[in-house]
């Protein structure tokens, strides 16, 4: 029987949640035995070529490309997991959510202390379009499980992954649920 397939992505995140995933110490050897990694920065597979069992999403959606990646994860993954504060509630990038995006862009590109001469807000069509605010993943697609934390501890990620792989409910002890 083939191994369960996992895909991961970091959207508007800092890769800290991926680091925490790698922080499961020697359990990583067991994980490699248990699962196959598909589209993920961990193995640098860039496109989905088959359906996956579990999708781990780090980060919320701050631009249209994030939304497209998230939607493609939803399409390809049986179970979608929001990993970390940014995926769950927007996190640090969402600190801008109270500020109109026009002001954000102007502040970042036109009014910086180092801005000189005629500058523009970058508008190359290759660049992802930034959204009006940073969205938690579940406000864009259905999300099946949430792992809070900044980052979620390696133990929480391990517990969640093994629970999902074994098809049992999450056993979240008090020390595993943390938002910081």
């Amino acid at each position: 029987m083939s191994k369960p397939v996992i895909a991961t992505a970091s959207l508007a995140g800092c890769f800290g949640c991926h680091m925490s995933l790698l922080d499961i110490d020697d359990r990583i050897l067991k994980l490699i035995e248990l699962v196959e990694f598909h589209k993920s920065p961990i193995d640098d597979i860039k496109t989905f070529t088959k359906p996956c069992d579990i999708g781990l999403i780090e980060g919320g959606c701050c631009n249209h490309e994030n939304v497209e990646v998230l939607r493609s994860f939803r399409k390809h993954c049986k179970t979608l997991v929001a990993v970390g504060e940014c995926a769950v509630m927007g996190g640090l990038p969402a600190l801008r959510n109270g500020i109109p995006i026009k002001d954000c862009l102007e502040e970042a590109y036109l009014r910086t202390p180092t801005t000189e001469g005629n500058t523009v807000i970058p508008n190359d069509e290759e660049l992802p379009v930034i959204l009006d605010k940073v969205y938690p993943c579940h406000e864009i697609v259905k999300v099946d499980a949430f792992l809070p934390g900044c980052p979620p501890s390696a133990d929480l990620i391990w517990e969640a992954l093994t629970a999902l792989l074994e098809g049992r409910p999450l056993k979240l002890t008090y020390d595993l649920i943390k938002y910081d």
């Binding site: 249209h64 939304v67 995006i101 807000i121 508008n123 009006d132 969205y135 579940h138």
Partner: peptide, 25 residues
């Protein structure tokens, strides 16, 4: 019943497209 129906990508992109002078989706 699980579908998320109220996110509108084009609407979410509109303000920054305007600010950057990019085509409005």
């Amino acid at each position: 019943a699980d579908a998320v129906l109220d996110f509108d990508l084009a609407a979410a992109m509109e303000a920054s497209c305007r600010a950057a002078g990019r085509p409005i989706p």
